[in-house]
Amino acid sequence: MPVEDDETLREILNRRTIAVVGCSSTPGKAAHGVPKYLLEHGYDVIPVNPFADEIFDRPAADSLSDVDERIDVVCVFRPSEEVSGIVDEALERDDVDVVWTQLGIVDDEAATRAEDAGKTVVQDRCIKVEHRRLVA
């Protein structure tokens, strides 16, 4: 079951390196504003977007497999139908502890696969809203 309790959400929000899949370079989009907020609150945000070279003055990776740094949390800003492939990529990495899908993004089958592989899953929640509510 995806995480629902505040204690576990706080623990997740204590992890510092977040790869944002679908990170946008367009101000005004949630996929831009949320990772910018995370950066402003001390997180190491790794933008993942194959259509951008750089976001927030940081190099943008084409995919999770192209990220050299350790990743604690994969935060997903892509449509629900793309979550399965993103989870597959996350499962290929030994360092990813958490897969977090933003508001309105749900794939129960992919969530179950991630959990069965030992990953913590948060679905259909905004990481910025949860940070403001539980940490800030």
Rank of each mutant, 00 (worst) to 15 (best):
P2H: 05
V3N: 04
E4N: 11
E4V: 13
D6N: 14
T8D: 12
T8E: 14
T8L: 11
R10T: 13
R10H: 10
R10P: 14
E11T: 12
I12P: 15
N14C: 10
R15M: 15
R15A: 11
R15Y: 15
R16A: 13
T17R: 13
T17I: 14
T17N: 12
A19W: 07
V20C: 14
V20Y: 11
V21T: 04
V21L: 11
G22A: 08
G22L: 10
C23L: 08
S24G: 11
T26P: 10
P27K: 07
P27Y: 10
A31C: 10
A31T: 09
A31W: 08
A31R: 10
H32T: 13
H32V: 14
P35R: 08
P35T: 05
P35S: 09
Y37L: 12
L38R: 10
L39H: 07
E40Y: 09
Y43E: 13
Y43P: 09
Y43M: 09
D44C: 11
D44F: 08
D44K: 15
V45C: 13
I46F: 11
P47F: 10
P50G: 10
P50Q: 09
F51G: 13
A52V: 12
A52R: 13
D53A: 15
E54A: 12
E54M: 14
I55N: 09
I55D: 10
I55K: 08
D57C: 14
D57M: 10
D57E: 15
P59Y: 13
A60S: 15
A60G: 14
A61Q: 08
A61V: 13
A61T: 07
S63A: 09
S63L: 11
S63V: 05
S63C: 10
S65I: 15
D68L: 11
I71W: 07
I71R: 02
D72R: 04
D72N: 08
V73L: 12
V73T: 07
V73C: 13
V76N: 06
F77Q: 05
R78G: 02
P79D: 05
E81K: 01
E81I: 06
E82N: 06
E82A: 07
V83S: 02
V83L: 03
S84A: 08
S84Y: 01
G85Y: 01
I86R: 01
V87C: 02
E89T: 02
E89N: 05
E89V: 04
A90N: 02
E92R: 07
R93K: 03
R93S: 02
D94S: 04
D94E: 06
V96F: 03
D97A: 09
W100H: 01
T101D: 03
Q102P: 05
Q102G: 03
Q102A: 06
L103F: 11
L103Q: 06
G104I: 06
G104Y: 06
I105S: 00
I105P: 01
V106E: 00
D107G: 00
D107P: 01
D108P: 02
D108W: 00
E109A: 02
E109N: 00
A110Q: 02
A110Y: 02
A111F: 01
A111I: 00
T112D: 00
E115N: 03
D116L: 04
A117I: 03
G118Y: 01
G118C: 01
V121W: 00
D124C: 05
D124N: 06
D124S: 04
R125Q: 04
C126E: 03
C126W: 08
I127V: 15
E130D: 08
H131R: 04
R133E: 07
R133P: 02
L134M: 06
V135C: 07
A136T: 15
